[in-house]
Write a protein that binds this DNA or RNA. Sequence first.
DNA 1: GAAGATTGTTGTTGACGACAACAATTGTTG
DNA 2: CAACAATTGTTGTCGTCAACAACAATCTTC
Lengths: 177, 177
Amino acid sequence: MVGNAQVSRAAKSRAGARPSRGPRRSANGSAASNGLDDEIGLDALAGHAGYAVRRFQIWIFQDFIRTLAAVDIRPTQYSVMTVIGANPGLSQMAVAKRLGIERARLVHLLDSLEHRDLVSRIRSATDRRSHALHLTARGRTALAQFKRLAAEHERHVAEKIGKENREKLLQILSAFT
Amino acid sequence: MVGNAQVSRAAKSRAGARPSRGPRRSANGSAASNGLDDEIGLDALAGHAGYAVRRFQIWIFQDFIRTLAAVDIRPTQYSVMTVIGANPGLSQMAVAKRLGIERARLVHLLDSLEHRDLVSRIRSATDRRSHALHLTARGRTALAQFKRLAAEHERHVAEKIGKENREKLLQILSAFT
DNA sequence: GAAGATTGTTGTTGACGACAACAATTGTTG
DNA sequence: CAACAATTGTTGTCGTCAACAACAATCTTC
């Protein structure tokens, strides 16, 4: 069930500061010469926000998944439950829009959460096309636990990049939340 | 060719600061009541780095793809060419490790780039299992153009989050580059 | 030289985003 | 009010991508 989450096991623990430099051992003819000694230097990629963000996102999702593995909740499931918990009665359309996921995708997510008795779909009386989404009683207590684990995950993030950096980052990206 | 890139069309242009508050119209029974007026408030998600980073990553990849659409280069292809360009002669294993992608995945990426005559695989004389990767002449001039477009993309990022914020972000995430 | 590791390759699985089509229902408009 | 358009949830297809497993060719090592 971990599935996606683009983990890329070679998580790399190094974060050593190393002065940038020109291409190393360029055109030495021998491939595999760089097989094990790590450290290649990708220079040009260093100035690209997208690359750094992608790598960070991979790391952060991996940690989230690992931290919440015991309760078997993935980031998207967590975000869905959080939104429903904070806004009971929302339609699927509204949740999908808010989270930027497709309503087709949300169908499966809710199927899964409903099977686990965490969320319930209730036909709306006013608009019988739509479903009012609610957490079940079990879902509410479960979400409380999920949030505790998510907070632990956030502490991991703070450990990784620094407490102030995490807050600065949240501030910088607040427009996307 | 855009394919993945998790776009989520509802790109949202709003970034209005709005004071956080408790659950809105909780349990009003009527779903769909929130269908069109946007603004739902997901509260709890606001403090989660992973969510903000994910949304930002979606935005940034989308812009990268759009900005380099004319040359039909996606972020991963760009990163592969950049690394090879900076470190000619690398093996596929080394490139995969450096970029945190699987060697199985790199096979297809290189197939595509080789078909377009941007990259060439040269059997290593010293280790005949491996391929030494090089940019072709065409690949080198192409990469130069890609880099110009990528720089334009970075300017879009700076416009979006602010010049200093972009630099701060690069600094915070430098450990992941 | 035989056993084990590495490299590139192929194929499978699962998560995910984009899209298209559909039934049920609502809204809109002549 | 009746035809037509739009919305909601749903199903299914396609393409991208990460994670694995297996394999042949080729080193490495003992």
